[in-house]
């Protein structure tokens, strides 16, 4: 007789935020995030996610749009000591910015919920 095994896998990956152009997932097991954007899925740890945010927020989209001298509509988002580099069009930058803004808002919200509910002394 064969025993039927039930394997219970606690889902450790949660969608943090998504837009029409991409999504960000959090992995509780590995304390990291997966960013599904521009046709690839990249893994980011805490430091790298912060660096990505800083890099993307720093791009002056308005200046890109108004600059007539730009020959190619391409911007390289390079993150120091991180495996991933994005080469993006201005529209993609706007989309990535939106995705990250939403993501950090959700993470902030999650933090508030944790603070107010889970961390109360019982």
């Amino acid at each position: 007789m064969q025993a039927t095994e039930t394997i219970c896998i606690k889902p450790s990956i949660t969608e943090v935020f998504s837009t029409a152009s991409g999504a960000v997932y959090q992995c509780d097991k590995d304390n990291c995030w997966y960013i599904d954007f521009a046709g690839k899925v990249n893994r980011f740890d805490y430091r790298c996610l912060h660096k990505l945010r800083k890099a993307v927020y720093h791009i002056d989209v308005e200046a890109l749009l108004l600059n007539p001298k730009r020959s190619a509509d391409m911007e390289i988002v390079f993150i120091c000591a991180c495996d991933h580099t994005y080469i993006l069009t201005t529209l993609e930058i706007i989309a990535l910015k939106e995705l990250l803004q939403g993501t950090f808002t959700m993470l902030e919200l999650n933090h508030i919920i944790y603070d107010r509910l889970h961390r109360l002394a019982v």
Binding site: Q26, N31, Y46, E108, H111, Y114
Partner: peptide, 14 residues
């Protein structure tokens, strides 16, 4: 969902 940000860092980005 875990609060990873808080696990890694005590202060807010602001």
């Amino acid at each position: 969902m875990k609060d990873i940000m808080r696990i890694k860092c005590l202060i807010s980005t602001e």
